[in-house]
Design a protein around this nucleic acid. Structure first.
Lengths: 202, 202
DNA sequence: GGTAACAAAATTGGCACCAATAATGTGCCA
DNA sequence: TGGCACATTATTGGTGCCAATTTTGTTACC
């Protein structure tokens, strides 16, 4: 039997992101071992790993809990993302090769297509893929992984963000403009676009 | 008996920072349970937490290992720190109250004193305290904690950084200049100082 | 001597149980 | 009824043991 704790960690993180757990509630180990059909040891390992990544909270002798939807906290994490992503705008432009730009444009257009005719459950994934590839232009994989974690900390309830159709369409438009900025090597414009793109979700 | 796994995590992290483990080596659970005089479960918990924070590496069925001294990796993590810290320069200046500036100056002077007449083992701590307080002016505790972790990822061998006396003295000087920049609300100068302060350690 | 196959040891992963702590319920009394 | 002490339950923390996997050592063979 292969190591199951890692897959459990991923599944739990994904369920956290999807907002399947009510904010502030306790992640009881027996519930999780029941839900994912594993033993308690893998559950504990997954919880500790996610706590280390600050995706969940931990209190001694009380357990692990889902972050409550704290506007102040999400604003702070968003500020971190803002500093990192805009701070790397220059490196993105410097490291973007033509074929990467083409792939970015394809992802941006794919996102726009999904905004038009669905399937809407793919919106989050393609959006994530676009931003990952954009940041990957820097070649800094550690930064990309870190931003991924920060994103998981800011969007515990994606529904509220993606509900508004006008915002989604504006996001799609901004994606395309970002590609243009990268193509023209205009890092200041890219940073500006990223800024408003990140902050619009508050 | 109170929960010992947390203290173990801290102790292990501190020993990691101090460079007590040779880079690339395996952190065998029996060795650690022997070293810290605890059971294997707390050790496992600490390892998993540190792996979640990316302070150590994990491989399935092989265990946890110390990061090898990879110049490329440390450069990437340093780039992240640079983006974050300089990105918050404005908020630092905006959020610094007079008494906080006084405390910052005191810490900077304390650092300079230690540079002159020791005890040199306190250099790292006071340097850390200065930078923590500086970043804390933003009120963004999540950012401060994150930068702390990033710092742990960049300086696995502090000796090599602090050996050079000329550099240490320049650091002390830069600390004082940073306080001045904050006092004058000159966020651009502060960002510039932070930039060279961080990059000088490469 | 070098290499491959095999055996032995070392190491991690997981499970079942018990201890310690926190949460909950219950009865008593004013 | 409301609150407090106490017992009960629920939940987490830790230990010992065993299984699975990897690593190391050994022997046979060329």
């Amino acid at each position: 039997m292969s190591d199951e704790s890692d897959s459990i960690t991923e599944r739990l993180a994904e369920d956290l992101r999807a907002g399947l757990f009510t904010p502030g509630s306790w992640l009881k180990q027996v519930d999780l071992q029941d839900r994912y059909a594993v033993g308690r040891a893998p559950v504990r390992k997954a919880l500790e790993a996610l706590a280390g990544r600050r995706l969940i909270r931990y209190e001694k002798n009380r357990g692990y809990s889902v972050h409550p939807t704290d506007n102040d906290e999400t604003a702070q994490v968003l500020a971190i993302r803002l500093a990192i992503e805009t701070g790397f705008a220059e490196e993105i432009c410097a490291g973007a090769r033509p074929e990467t730009i083409a792939e970015l444009r394809e992802l941006a257009e794919q996102f726009a297509r999904i905004v038009r005719d669905g399937p809407f459950e793919r919106l989050y994934d393609t959006n994530l893929a676009f931003h990952r590839k954009l940041l990957l232009c820097t070649g800094n994989l550690h930064m990309v992984n870190l931003v991924d974690d920060l994103r998981l900390r800011t969007s515990p309830a994606p529904a509220s963000q993606w509900m508004d159709r006008a915002r989604i369409e504006r996001s799609a438009q901004e994606h395309l403009e970002m590609v243009l900025a990268v193509e023209m090597d205009d890092s200041l414009r890219l940073a500006s676009l990223m800024r408003q793109h990140i902050l619009q979700k508050v």
